[in-house]
Design a protein around this nucleic acid. Structure first.
Lengths: 204, 204
DNA sequence: GCAAGAGTGGACCGTCAAGTCCAGTTCGCC
DNA sequence: GGCGAACTGGACTTGACGGTCCACTCTTGC
């Protein structure tokens, strides 16, 4: 009954309300963290009431799962223009700019929405599994690009696109964490430079 | 009056009590996060009472600062055998093993103690500043190693040891985050491999 | 047009968190 | 040994939080 993305029993108005709740929760949790965000804050920010929240979600934990899904979609959507062209150094460099611009947009506050959720929630099994899946989805775009490069014979034989993707993602996450701690885009820039150099090094 | 590491007004017994509180808090917060750890849990785990905690700390925020300091010391101490020999690829590889073993020791739960605190606390100015300092201290060991390499002419001219250190630290943090999310040491291994390759690339 | 059920508002409750307070004990020092 | 300060125990206050409940209003399908 809860946690339904598609309109099974829900009307258009209901879905809109649900979406408003998730959007408000995602913003607040991005800014302050999951634990530091109360349901009352979410209700105030979304202009809804307790009964509505519990009409659409089983509880806070369930809402958090919806937030994870939403943030995953948003992160991927924000990179969408670049994600499908990660099959060349030029494409990776364009993606690099996009990722860094995104951090600048938020003044280096909050870091990576997915990464922040992962840091806070990966002690709990269910959110952790969902977040692992989010990373995997993100990584799949990198893997697709690297696989295309390998298919064109641009990658040294024996290079595993999946391993390469994990390394690059690690660089993004670590760079984003240091960026939000130091309030400077520099760490993210350096980490991404390293990662792209790493890819280039596998080329031949 | 609070937050005194050295024995200004405190007796040996008092300092021991204080240390027990910080130790218990650090362990609990490492396992579950800062927000998810209550003072009552800390008291129970340390065998102390409310009045003692508030005798040594101004409040939870103040206790958290002490926890940051303690975890920083612990992380650096755990790497101590390797930290002073980061001036060669061989030294970096030994350090790599140490870092990975540490994650294995905790079954990939919790990630990097400093990184986890940074992810949760870098929205608040005071903890954030302290954590930035912790990263800088950590990085200073890397910088020392790279500077020694540069002094021996092993690094390509124009290579900035500080930039190199930030990139390597980013890899560790990102690798640790993915490691705790996927419950596998693989991401950390791949990230560290990439980072060390990155250093090697700046050589000669 | 009229049920049935989706959607809504907000009062209410139990719990547990941080933080306060005070009375009592131990310690360090003269 | 005795005085003051450090130290300790735990009852207590206050408030916020997640969660429940019920009365009420819209929407929709027939």
């Amino acid at each position: 009954m809860t946690n339904v993305e598609t309109a099974s029993h829900h009307t258009a108005r209901g879905m809109a309300t649900r979406a408003r709740i998730v959007a408000a929760a995602a913003d607040l949790m991005f800014a302050a963290g999951v634990a530091a965000t109360s349901l009352d804050q979410v209700l105030a920010a979304s202009g809804t009431s307790k009964s509505q929240l519990y009409h659409y979600f089983a509880g806070k934990d369930d809402l958090v799962l919806a937030v994870i899904r939403r943030q995953t979609e948003r992160v991927l959507a924000a990179q969408e223009p670049h994600l499908r062209q990660l099959d060349s150094i030029a494409g990776l460099l364009r993606w690099r700019e996009g990722v860094i611009d995104l951090q600048r947009l938020h003044d280096c506050v909050g870091g990576c929405p997915i990464g922040s959720l992962a840091a806070e929630l990966s002690a709990s099994p269910v959110p952790r599994a969902l977040l692992a899946e989010s990373f995997q989805r993100w990584g799949s775009y990198l893997i697709a690009g690297f696989t295309a490069m390998a298919g064109r014979g641009e990658l040294a034989p024996g290079t595993d696109p999946a391993d390469l993707a994990v390394a690059v993602l690690s660089a993004v996450q670590g760079g984003a964490l240091l960026t939000k701690t130091t309030r400077s885009t520099r760490p993210l820039e350096l980490a991404l430079d390293m990662a792209i150099e790493h890819v280039r090094r596998q080329m031949r």
